[in-house]
């Protein structure tokens, strides 16, 4: 086995190599910049890209999600959401269901009367045996039909990933127009409050690795149902 040098020493060496190389480039930079003025044209770097849209976020979300083979359903309240969940679970004949610990999921599931095993803290091996996973989502991005799930808000990582069907519940007012807006909200939380894992989900799992032929559901869920709760009667 190779003897490793002290990590701090290597860090110092790598950073000083970077500084040396950057310093060596300075005389060339001045000449080069004159020839590549266009790269300097935009000195203010980055911000969310502006986006004006007339469509409502929920409509836009649905269109984008359906374009990537996800199912999008809209309901007025949590009871109606529960009815849909029941219907989906019935259709796939779910015997074992993994749910996240989110409050929204808890409330909706309290209305779901089903003769099936519902696991809040499924173990890894149990998860491989589940027919569906149910989570909520903390944000949505309408432009791409993307769900954003934060680990601090719910334990979502495996329930949204391992079972073949993922059902996600989201309140309509959590859907922003763009991913840029969601990123801004995440960034406003500050580095210490940011969840240790944030997952963006856009449609079901897919691959084109064999002759570029699309196949759905390779490692993650083959079906994604997003239920948007409009809450108009709240």
């Amino acid at each position: 086995m190779v003897e490793l040098e002290d990590n701090k020493e290597v860090r110092r060496a790598m950073l000083s190599a970077i500084r040396e190389h950057l310093a060596a480039s300075m005389p060339f930079d001045a000449v080069h910049d004159e020839h590549h003025a266009e790269h300097k044209a935009n000195p203010r770097i980055s911000s969310a890209v502006a986006d004006e849209q007339s469509a409502s976020p929920t409509e836009r979300f649905r269109n984008a999600l359906e374009a990537v083979a996800g199912h999008c359903l809209m309901v007025n309240d949590e009871r109606a959401a529960a009815d849909l969940v029941l219907e989906i679970l019935g259709k796939i004949n779910a015997r074992r269901i993994a749910v996240s610990d989110s409050l929204l999921v808890k409330r909706v599931m309290s209305h779901v009367k089903l003769d099936a095993e519902i696991l809040v803290d499924a173990s890894k091996s149990e998860l491989f045996d589940c027919d569906a996973g149910i989570t909520s989502a903390q944000w949505g991005a309408a432009e791409t039909g993307t769900l954003v799930l934060e680990a601090d808000a719910e334990r979502h990582r495996l329930a949204s990933l391992v079972p073949p069907v993922h059902i996600a519940l989201i309140e309509a007012d959590k859907i922003r127009q763009t991913l840029g807006e969601v990123l801004e909200s995440l960034s406003e939380q500050g580095r210490d409050r940011l969840s240790r894992t944030v997952t963006f989900i856009t449609g079901p799992s897919r691959t084109s690795d064999i002759e570029l032929t699309l196949a759905i559901g390779v490692h993650g869920p083959g079906e994604l149902f997003v239920i948007i709760i409009e809450g108009r009667d709240k």
Partner: peptide, 24 residues
């Protein structure tokens, strides 16, 4: 790359889980 608007998944991972009860 693939002509997609967005790939199906992005995982943003910041350090290690906050409590033993968390996943990961």
């Amino acid at each position: 790359g693939t002509g997609q608007r967005l790939t199906s998944y992005q995982s943003l991972i910041t350090g290690v889980k906050k409590s033993v009860d968390d996943e990961g």
